[in-house]
Computed example of a mutant assay.
Amino acid sequence: MNYRLETTAPNTPDDVLAAFLTLDDPARRNALSDALLDQLSALLQQAASDPRVRVIVLTSSHPRIFSAGGNLDAFADDRATIEKYAGLSRFPALFRTLTGIDKPIVCAANGDVLAGALGIALACDLIIAKDSIRLGCPEINVGAFPFMISALIFRATGRLVANELMMTGRLISTAEAAAAGLINKVVPDDEFDDALRRWISEIAAKSPLLLGMGKRALAATRDLPLESALDYLQAQLALAFTTDDLPEGVRAFKEKRPPQWRGR
C-alpha cells in the first residue's frame, strides 16, 4: 500500500487535502491478502483522523487491475479450518470501516475490479471508472461464492442482476455496470486522471461537517422502516440547523462567493 496527500485542486489551501491510498502489489494483481487488508484498514484510519483530509481516494498502481480480489492461494492452502476462519473478519471489518468513516471515499477504478475488490468498491461512497475496465464476481468459476460481498451487491443493484453476477461469474463492462447502478461515472481512459481530479475538487469544496453528518445519516437509515428513518432524519436536519456551516453556505450562495466552512 502507498499513502500520499495532495491538494485537492490548484490554488487551494494547504490544509485542504485528498488522501490517496494506492493498492501496490502488482506482481500479485493486488490480491487482497491479510497483510494488504490490514494495511488498507490502518491507512483508512490514518486518513480519517487527519483534519486536513477532505476526501479519501482508493486506487491501484497496476496498469490494468484495480484488484483481482481475495488471495486464492490462501483459499486452497492446508491450514486448519479454524485458522482460516480466524481471518475472515477482515473483510466485514473493512466494509464497516469504509462505511463508518465520516469523509467521502472515492473508488478510482483504473483497472478491473474483481471478486472481493468489488465489495471494497461498493463500500465506498462513489465509484469513478475507466471505460475499458471490467467488473465482476468470478469466484464461482473456481468453486467459491462471493458470500462476503453479496450483501453489498444486493444493496447496490437489483436482485436479478446481482444473482447473474454471482451465479455465472461473468465479467461486465462499465456500460453494463453503470446501467445496473454499480458505478457512478465512466470516463474515457485518457481523460480519467483529469476527471478524477475535478471530482475530488468538487467534493472537497463542500462542508466537511455536513458531508459527515449526511454520510452517517445514510448509513443509519439505509435499512430502517420508512417511519423510523423519517424520525431519525428529522432529528439530523434539526441538528444541522444548529451548525455554523449551514447558514454560511446560504449566505455564500446569496453573496455569490465561495463559502468559508468552519466545521462546527
Rank of each mutant, 00 (worst) to 15 (best):
R4T: 05
L5P: 00
E6C: 09
T7N: 12
P10E: 03
T12H: 10
P13H: 10
V16D: 11
L17V: 02
L17T: 05
L21N: 00
D24R: 07
D25P: 13
P26D: 08
P26I: 02
L32H: 00
S33I: 10
L37W: 03
D38E: 08
Q39M: 09
L43T: 05
L44E: 04
Q45F: 11
Q46K: 13
A47R: 06
A48S: 06
D50H: 06
P51W: 08
R52I: 08
V53P: 00
R54G: 04
P63Q: 03
F66I: 07
S67E: 10
A68Q: 14
N71G: 01
L72C: 06
D73V: 13
I82T: 15
K84E: 06
L88S: 14
F91C: 12
A93Y: 09
F95D: 11
G100N: 13
I101F: 11
K103P: 13
K103C: 02
P104S: 07
I105N: 09
I105E: 11
V106S: 09
C107R: 03
A108N: 02
V113T: 04
A115I: 04
G116M: 05
G116Y: 03
A123I: 00
K130W: 02
D131S: 15
S132Q: 09
E139K: 12
N141L: 15
V142H: 14
G143F: 01
F145P: 12
F145W: 12
F154R: 15
R155M: 10
R155L: 09
A156N: 02
G158I: 06
G158W: 07
R159D: 14
V161I: 13
A162R: 04
N163Y: 12
M167E: 13
G169N: 10
R170K: 14
L171I: 12
S173N: 12
T174F: 01
A175G: 10
I183A: 00
V186I: 10
P188V: 04
D189G: 01
D189Q: 08
F192W: 03
F192G: 08
W199Q: 14
I203Y: 05
I203W: 14
A205P: 12
P208L: 04
P208T: 09
L209D: 01
L209I: 10
L210S: 04
M213Y: 11
R216P: 06
A217P: 13
L218M: 11
A219N: 12
A220Q: 01
A220E: 13
T221D: 02
L226C: 08
L230V: 15
F241M: 15
E248N: 03
F253S: 08
K256L: 14
P259G: 09
W261R: 08
G263S: 07
